[in-house]
Design a binder for these strands. Sequence first.
DNA 1: CTTAAGTCCTGCAACGTTGTAGAGTGCGAA
DNA 2: TTCGCACTCTACAACGTTGCAGGACTTAAG
Lengths: 337, 337
Amino acid sequence: MPPRLKDVAARAGVSIKTVSNVVNGYVHVAPGTRARVQAVIEALGYVPNLAARQLRGGRSGVIALAVPELPAPYFAELAGLIVQAAERRRWTVLIDQTDGRAERERDLLAGLRRHAIDGLIFSPSALNGEEIVGSGGPPAVLLGARAGPGVADHVAIDDRAAGADATRHLCELGRNRIAVIGVLDDSPRGAAARRRLAGYRAALAEAGLANDPALEVGVGRFGRAEGAAAMGRLLGRARPPDAVFCVNDLLALGALRTLLERGVDVPGEVALIGFDDIEDGRFSTPTLSTVAPDTPRVAQLAVDLLAERLGDGPAASGPPRELRVEHRLLPRESTVG
Amino acid sequence: MPPRLKDVAARAGVSIKTVSNVVNGYVHVAPGTRARVQAVIEALGYVPNLAARQLRGGRSGVIALAVPELPAPYFAELAGLIVQAAERRRWTVLIDQTDGRAERERDLLAGLRRHAIDGLIFSPSALNGEEIVGSGGPPAVLLGARAGPGVADHVAIDDRAAGADATRHLCELGRNRIAVIGVLDDSPRGAAARRRLAGYRAALAEAGLANDPALEVGVGRFGRAEGAAAMGRLLGRARPPDAVFCVNDLLALGALRTLLERGVDVPGEVALIGFDDIEDGRFSTPTLSTVAPDTPRVAQLAVDLLAERLGDGPAASGPPRELRVEHRLLPRESTVG
DNA sequence: CTTAAGTCCTGCAACGTTGTAGAGTGCGAA
DNA sequence: TTCGCACTCTACAACGTTGCAGGACTTAAG
């Protein structure tokens, strides 16, 4: 029903291939012919058939983005930015939600989509990098958690340094019972959280503060509810903290809710800092201090790296690259209220 | 490089078509043959090529979901639910962000994707329904804003009734200067907001309250920042309101920030209610009263309607259907603190 | 005037799949 | 015995596109 090259060719009185050449901007087409074909293309509303193109050329123009949870503000924002960056290269982005289930991540890689996507931007939560890249799938760029050195292209902030920055900020306020929320077990999930934790410990040591295991609280997921519950546990301790570093803003917002609900003054009695700079934290009361990764740059670099891998240049088969992006400490009312 | 039907056929000693029949579950294949072919399929890791399937069959197994803003929590949640519902039908969802730009919405419909998607679930913001459906594109299901009667399948809550419910709740608290934030100009954007506004006015009338135009505040977008600014304007009025209905939760969270920032007691001095029941509102302080649409059901119905259109049954070409889903009033601390 | 290089255009084949038509069995009913 | 039917499997064509090879013509160089 929709017009094909054949239809355009018939109307313009040229061969199918010439129309194809016009569509693809091939140089050796006489200006008059080009104009005539263009006119017919517009008159008929011809649009190339992607399936046929892909079948022929092996490229679909679609890349996949896999994130653990789309509704999490940070990932939603990241997804939006990646879609924008991809659009500039005329790529379509297929957004996939893995729910942190390894099975789902594996399906995604092995499943039908294997033929359908040219590349993958992956923010892993359950699988580690080896498994992702070793599966013989399309070129991948990893975000956030590192997959071990040299496995795949990788874009991330320096989580350890950022965690230290956040903690140091709390130290500089004169706090000396600084808790952290977001410790996770050994699963590949939370690899970034573990590096932020390492930064936390380093900053404590640097400030001459003891590292009290009772002040490190684990969570099962990284949502508001878990942050609220974790804060509840902290407040139940014999000696509650006077400052809390949450490894992401959602945990922090949950923790904030618990603090305010129990009448704890923030930042007077407890200072609170999160991580990610999601919009919610800019409108909470008190506004949430946080560490802001340069997410637009993460998105841009991820797409750029993938483009290099997919290109025909020499970079396409080079060794995996590790890129770091900047982060900024954003003190707000929850620490310097 | 990846194995094709041909490779499987060669190894199993059958014809290509027989392998295809096995893959597609065709019944008349001898059990022994089937088993042998299955074994080879697994040994080689054969996966059907989607591009070829689509080229042959005209169906891609991909549906598009177009929302104005992916990072908005309500849309992110909706998207997640639709992806889940689609997954049950083994569809892939291509999520598109239109940014509320008519041009972008048009591109989406007319552009390359025209061949690539089987159907469309559209939460329109800039285009009206006629334009969407009239474009000769794939079957579409509209969410939220109505496209005028009988244009396309449509799933929504009763925004007018829901707006009235929210306002009535404020009336029943004894408030009598009830403002509304979220009035929008006449553009197709904010059609739902306008119906919520109509409900607001109806509830005021029902309660015997005058309708004061000074208490209806417009916004340019539906985000936190706009809510905060609008609240600022309301507080600047000679006689500020004692209750505010925001047509969505983001506006309400922005308004809440302004109220608390200025030391206004919520709900003591000003009661506040939003709309959508996004997670943020369950963890703000005070927690945000709201109206909760049955979003999981919206998602499920949207996918079901699309499935009917895409099916071969009689429903495929029937008249457009209008489906309503329920909503619930959720009083929380911002009104009944 | 011949040859080489360049320009413009065309036809063929192939990408991997599935619908259609039909060939070759074996089995039960007439 | 003969026919028809159900079953199992196969060959072929087509979906819409683009790379390749090459034909016809023009221009520039020797």
